[in-house]
Design a protein around this nucleic acid. Structure first.
Length: 489
RNA sequence: GGUCGGGUGGCCGAGCGGCUAGGCAGAGGUCUGCAAAACCUCGUACAGCGGUUCGAAUCCGCUCUCGACCUCCA
């Protein structure tokens, strides 16, 4: 069995995965800010990390998976202006902040369920960890890397960068950032505009306010991740993940905060999932080119001609690699859907296959299995994994048509591969075609197929074709195979 | 403007120094009463121009082009 290699943003290389503690993995992923319903682009990141989580479990690791929920949105932009996105949404919808968060959190949970995401072990919220955040800020201040200014606390990046490396994750150079910022330096309370807020002074219109040693206010947006990842995973853990767009400044600042507080770079492996594109452009709230996870399922977005099921969408996403960008389009989804159907149809008939006493398919099956492992161990190459699963589908179809023969063990092995890699790792819960049909329907179809068989044997093709055409119109397809006729809706 | 990452056959999408990616669409074939499905075969693609090399889609340089980050963002 080959070993797992992970692309580490920190080093820009694929590295052999060696967890800090044998057999155990600590993973922290930056979750959503709940000021609106997460869109498809947000979901892609979560689905990718869900796949990563699933594969780690599949390998037998004991994984502690933490993904935060940002439920207070006090954020500053470069000009030092505050943007309380949750408060803003609350006013817009005439609701309390808590109501907004509650509303979108339950929506987010529904989405995760619909798209078959495994729940993280812990989904901590920022507002429940104000004390922890304050404590870390105090540590940073004690170490001299933060200063108070007019009721707010800022991280002193210039000072910090003199004795610490800043910008490793995003490849940013501190000198450039500082020189840019000097030109922009303005009226605000920061010494340097690259300095970021650890604690913000409250505004009268703020909906969420907490007490702190520096007066009433609310936390900056990077500190919650530092506080919560430290609390639940320790000062250093294995994997820290998030979308690419969080590399700078969010992840850089997390590292700075941890080191500034006397801890280490929190993660051994930093992983970044790429963006979801629409017409070559990143899906984003501000571009307005986004659509929602439920809209695809319902077929209510303008770029799609029809609805697509959650497993199909998930399958489509898995066809691309997590570090590549992925373009969503009608054609791409349509072709993914066709492929998905071919695959799941083949997988669905495994249980009906009859085993032979001998076998000539062992080698092919073993090849698929070892290629599967190799693909996933190579930085989670789901794209290659799916190519292998199509090979498996061909093998199954050949067994079905007696071009290959398989014994009981082969069929068992095939089933294990499907359950392991397709269902468990890729997280695609396919319904075998007839599983949701009623017994009555099954009997009825058997009867119809029997009648048609009789007429075909009497060369009464007019009748047999009539039956087939009728069923076709009703959306039921008949397929005449060596073993008799099967049907599909 | 700065930094970084892309440009692969009709479309989507892996690979990243020599060995078939795969899917969808298309062509031909096998099976079949016909059809569908399935199976087999096929197209000979790597933005352009140079260079390195026995050998490059894969490495280097230049050009064109798209995008991301530099402001909130998964």
């Amino acid at each position: 069995m080959s070993e797992l290699f992970i692309y580490n943003t920190l080093t820009g290389k694929k590295e052999k995965f060696e967890p800090l503690h044998t057999g155990k993995v600590g993973m922290y992923v930056c979750g959503p800010t709940l000021y609106s319903e997460p869109h498809m682009g947000n979901l892609r990141t979560f689905i990718n990390f869900d796949m990563i989580y699933r594969y780690l479990l599949f390998l037998g690791f004991q994984v502690k998976y933490v993904r935060n929920i940002t439920d207070c949105g006090h954020i500053t932009n470069s000009l030092g202006q505050e943007q309380d996105s949750i408060g803003k949404a609350a006013k817009l919808e005439q609701m309390e902040s808590l109501e907004i968060v509650y509303k979108y959190n339950s929506k987010f949970q529904d989405i995760q369920k619909a798209y078959n995401l495994l729940r993280p072990n812990i989904e901590p919220t920022a507002t429940a960890h104000i004390q922890e955040q304050i404590q870390i800020i105090e540590k940073i201040m004690a170490n001299g890397y933060a200063y108070e200014s007019n009721g707010a606390v800022y991280f002193d990046l210039e000072k910090y960068s003199k004795s610490n490396a800043y910008g490793v994750i995003s490849g940013r150079k501190i000198e450039e950032l500082l020189s840019e910022s000097r030109e922009l330096q303005g009226q605000d309370e920061k010494r340097n505009s690259v300095d970021f807020a650890l604690w913000k002074k409250a505004n009268p219109e703020d909906m969420q306010i907490w007490r702190s040693p520096w007066g009433e206010g609310n936390p900056g947006w990077h500190i919650e991740c530092t506080a919560m990842s430290t609390k639940y995973l320790g000062e250093q853990f294995d994997i820290h993940g998030g979308g690419m767009d969080l590399k700078f400044p969010h992840h850089e600042d997390e590292v700075a905060q941890s080191c500034g507080a006397g801890m280490k770079n929190p993660a051994k492996y930093w992983m970044h999932a790429n963006m979801l594109n629409v017409n070559g452009q990143k899906m984003s709230k501000s571009f307005g080119n986004f659509f929602l996870p439920f809209e695809i399922l319902e077929g209510t977005t303008s770029i799609f001609t029809k609805p697509f099921s959650a497993p199909v969408v998930r399958f489509f996403m898995m066809m691309g690699h997590y570090r590549s960008d992925l373009d969503f389009s009608n054609d791409a989804l349509l072709s993914a859907e066709k492929g998905y159907e071919r695959l799941t149809e083949a997988f669905g008939k495994v249980s009906k296959l009859s085993a032979s006493d001998s076998s000539n398919s062992k080698e092919a099956i073993a090849q698929v299995e070892s290629n599967n492992a190799a693909a996933m161990n190579d930085d989670f190459n789901t794209s290659k994994l799916i190519a292998e699963l199509f090979e498996l589908a061909t093998i199954i179809n050949k067994i079905d048509s007696k071009d290959l023969i398989a014994d009981q063990n082969d069929l068992k092995k095939i089933n294990e591969i499907i359950q392991g890699y397709f269902v468990q790792v890729l997280g695609i819960n396919f319904e075998s075609n007839h599983s949701n049909q009623s017994q009555a329907m099954e009997h009825l179809m058997n009867l119809v197929i029997e009648i048609r068989k009789d007429s075909r044997e009497k060369k009464d093709f007019a009748t047999s074709d009539k039956i087939r055409d009728y069923l076709n119109q009703a959306g039921i397809e008949l397929r005449d195979g060596n073993e008799g006729t099967s049907w599909k809706i």
